[in-house]
Simulated scan of single mutants.
Amino acid sequence: MQTLLNNALVTEYFRLDSVVAVLAVGESPGTLARSRHGCKQLAIADSIVLDPAALAAPEICAGARVLNPVADLVPSDRSSLAEALIGAGLETRLLDGELGRWLGTPHYGGSDLLRNGLHGFAIEIPHELEWEALHGWLNAGTQTNGDLMYRTKGAVRIAGVDGPVIINGVQHVYQPPQRLPEVEVERSRLLFITANLDRAAVEDSLRIDLPQFQRLSEARAARHTRAASDPSIPL
């Protein structure tokens, strides 16, 4: 996935819609518990495709649900498989009025430990944010902990912008932010799937680091204002 999303020839014509994982009957609960890579793939997926034997095994479905409580479980022998997988993405969720489901509502509010060192948690922010400050915070987090931040989703209320701004990222790569002026949200919601990075660490970073990026943004804006009246002032 990272290879595709980092390829300019691909991203010029395509954007990330949804993440699909495949779970076969050979992937027993014990196998999943021992495989961080397998757990990661299930945890970040929007849809999980199961072969008929896996779908008929309650313990396998339950294991998938522990890792991902909101993904669609799709039978591999479904006649309209491609349609079902495409329908799990953001665009279809918006058409169906299911932005909250894409963001994992009402899940990810309790204990954030999923399995095998993976964490899944959502953080809600009641006040509007400044885009430049949030963008700086996300970039810093990606540079510092990109290998640990497997999936990031968000619908964020930005000051001066109608409707939320959608954030959709996989590790180091983020899709261009998408504005939804026709949608109303009461508060921002950020959903993280991470490795060895828990809710408390991210909440602390939001509390401590985000205001610093806000101050940098304000200082930069002030310099631009002064430079507009005095060209001798360096930016």
Score class of each variant (00 low, 15 high):
129 L>K: 12
104 G>H: 06
131 W>R: 13
119 H>G: 00
103 L>D: 04
58 P>M: 03
117 G>C: 00
108 Y>H: 14
94 L>E: 14
62 A>T: 11
133 A>I: 05
111 S>Q: 12
133 A>F: 04
75 P>A: 08
71 A>Y: 02
68 N>M: 05
119 H>C: 03
100 G>E: 01
117 G>F: 03
99 L>S: 04
53 A>S: 12
52 P>W: 12
105 T>D: 14
108 Y>Q: 10
84 A>D: 12
119 H>M: 01
75 P>G: 08
69 P>K: 11
79 S>P: 09
129 L>N: 05
87 G>Q: 05
115 R>Q: 15
93 R>Y: 07
55 L>Q: 13
67 L>H: 13
45 A>L: 02
132 E>W: 03
46 D>Y: 08
71 A>H: 00
122 A>S: 15
120 G>K: 05
73 L>I: 15
90 L>W: 01
68 N>Q: 10
86 I>E: 14
82 A>P: 03
96 D>A: 14
98 E>N: 15
109 G>W: 02
84 A>K: 12
113 L>D: 02
52 P>G: 12
95 L>V: 13
120 G>T: 04
98 E>Q: 15
130 E>S: 13
95 L>F: 09
113 L>A: 06
48 I>Y: 09
46 D>C: 08
76 S>K: 12
99 L>F: 07
91 E>R: 10
54 A>M: 01
123 I>W: 05
56 A>T: 00
56 A>K: 01
52 P>R: 12
73 L>K: 07
96 D>P: 03
68 N>I: 04
47 S>A: 14
83 E>T: 13
102 W>L: 09
58 P>R: 00
88 A>L: 01
131 W>C: 07
100 G>V: 00
46 D>V: 01
116 N>V: 11
75 P>D: 04
53 A>I: 09
119 H>D: 00
65 R>H: 11
121 F>D: 12
59 E>F: 00
120 G>V: 04
83 E>N: 13
114 L>W: 03
83 E>H: 15
126 P>V: 05
130 E>I: 09
96 D>Y: 12
96 D>R: 15
99 L>P: 08
50 L>C: 04
72 D>W: 12
60 I>D: 03
85 L>W: 02
46 D>H: 13
81 L>Y: 04
56 A>P: 02
73 L>E: 13
103 L>G: 06
89 G>K: 07
115 R>L: 15
70 V>A: 14
82 A>K: 07
97 G>A: 02
122 A>M: 11
73 L>C: 14
50 L>K: 04
122 A>R: 11
101 R>C: 11
